[in-house]
Design a protein around this nucleic acid. Structure first.
Length: 408
RNA sequence: GGUGGGGUACCGAAGUGGCCAACCGGGGCAGACUGUAAAUCUGUUGGCUAACGCCUUCGAUGGUUCGAAUCCAUCCCCCACCA
């Protein structure tokens, strides 16, 4: 590796929010280079939600940058954490997951993660490997390392405490478990979102307590989801999964607020600062149209996780369906046997429900009354309409829902 | 263990005997417009019904009442504070 250390530092710290500390990172890079030993870069994942989305990609990109400079990623799957059930959702304690479930999720995770990471430079570990072996006295020794004041200093705990929101003791254990993972895998660096800062720092404390070299802590911005406000997460439903179909992926990206485009370019695609600045200027001056820029963004993201060809196709399809209001080229087929029809005919409401385009007759009625329903090219406005459905005709409910009806 | 505060539709949150299928906000869905599943505006958002209306829902179960989300009893669950 002959890239100068300063250049490496610039690459590795780009887009970061917190860095503890630059001097330490430099020193580690230097000693690693001298000893021809890759650094161990730790990243933790919770197996409760196996689908990787663009929010995760922000961190994975950073890990990939480390790998491209020759370092090793230690990807930790928090299966131990999964087994005791994640309490971080404030209202309800999640049900602990079964072994099979965790194994299945872990597999999905790995399949997806290597769309970004370099498999050859990744070490996958499960934290049950060492956590399950801990005896209670070990746990006591660990917990003694962190004080309640330290815990309460953490942003979200403090807020919840002030608001009289419950905080379970298990939640206090989380940072400790995570920190202990760092001890076990001899992490040189740990990467996480800004919300992880506290947990990452606990890792440093515990490593010190165990007489190990402390890890460098590097945090990255949290990517906002499709609403452009709250962080992207599966539970909020504002995410784009990297395993989603090109069409879904493209459409979802097109629905982000315009103001988020630059951020997605930077965090998901890792585009350099000067390019982002130029883009923002072009947008502000009206030199480039937001619609085109967003199309480019959506295409770039689809191309990254599928292929350039798929991106092009998704873009064309989107244009056709939403700008020109034509039918998509792939429409799911629904079978409605002749037996269900009266004299070969069927009421529109029954049809909508049978085709899965409406949840109930009431919903179907509303759709029709609001002018959302089309059979072929004809808009249906009367809820009492009876139809002799021609074989293969297309029914549309709203902008996005289509179904092709056949009788057998 | 004691005291106090709570459990309302997808979420948050009003409602304390009839005007409550339940204000309002968010989210969802739809329409208009458009530059896109952006923004904005409008409508809609338990089930059955063409409609009148009927049925189920306000932690659970019983009860009072012509009538309950609202009152009473028992139970279950959550939170905070003091120990």
């Amino acid at each position: 590796m002959n890239i100068p250390i300063d250049r490496q530092l610039d690459i590795l710290t780009a887009r970061s929010v917190d860095l503890v500390s630059r001097a330490e990172l430099r020193r580690k890079l230097e000693t690693a280079a001298a000893a021809k030993r890759p650094l161990r870069v730790k990243y933790g994942a919770d197996p409760s939600a196996p689908d990787i989305h663009l929010g995760h990609v922000v961190g994975l990109n950073k890990l990939r940058e480390f790998q491209d400079l020759g370092h090793t990623v230690v990807f930790i799957i928090g299966d131990f954490t999964g087994m005791i059930g994640d309490p971080s959702g404030r209202s309800e304690t999640r049900k602990p997951m079964s072994r099979e479930q965790i194994a299945a999720n872990a597999k999905t995770y790995q399949d997806q993660v290597f769309k970004v990471l370099d498999r050859a430079r990744t070490e996958v570990r499960f934290n049950s490997e060492w956590c399950a072996a801990l005896a209670f006295p070990d746990v006591l020794r660990l917990t003694a390392q962190v004080t309640v004041a330290q815990m309460l200093a953490r942003d979200d705990f403090q807020k919840r405490f002030k608001d009289n929101q419950p905080i379970s003791v298990v939640e206090f254990l989380y940072p400790i478990i995570q920190g202990y993972d760092s001890v076990q895998v001899d992490a040189d660096i740990e990467v996480g979102g800004t919300d992880q800062l506290f947990n990452l720092l606990v890792g440093r404390d515990l490593q010190k307590a165990f007489g190990k070299e402390q890890q460098v802590v590097l945090t990255l911005p949290l990517l906002e989801g499709l609403d452009g406000v709250r962080k992207m997460s599966k539970s909020l439903g504002n995410y784009v999964g990297i395993a989603e179909s090109p069409r879904e992926m493209f459409g979802k990206i097109m629905s982000i607020p315009d103001a988020m485009m630059a951020r997605y370019f930077a965090l998901v695609l890792g585009r350099p600062d000067d390019e982002i600045k130029a883009l923002e200027q072009a947008l502000a001056s009206g030199k480039r149209h937001p619609r085109q820029v967003k199309d480019e963004l959506a295409q770039a993201i689809v191309a990254r996780f599928h292929s350039p060809a798929a991106a092009l196709a998704a873009s064309a399809e989107f244009e056709r369906v939403f700008s020109e209001h034509k039918q998509p080229d792939e429409i799911p087929t629904i079978v409605i046997p002749m037996a269900q029809r009266k004299n070969g005919k069927l009421g529109v409401m029954a049809l909508l429900v049978a085709a899965g385009l409406a949840e109930s007759n009431g919903a179907a009625r509303r759709l029709i009354q609001q002018g959302a329903v089309k059979i072929g090219e004809a808009k249906i406005t009367d809820i009492a309409t009876e139809l002799a459905i021609p074989e293969g005709c297309v029914i549309q409910a709203g902008k996005r829902a289509f179904a092709r009806i056949v009788s057998a």
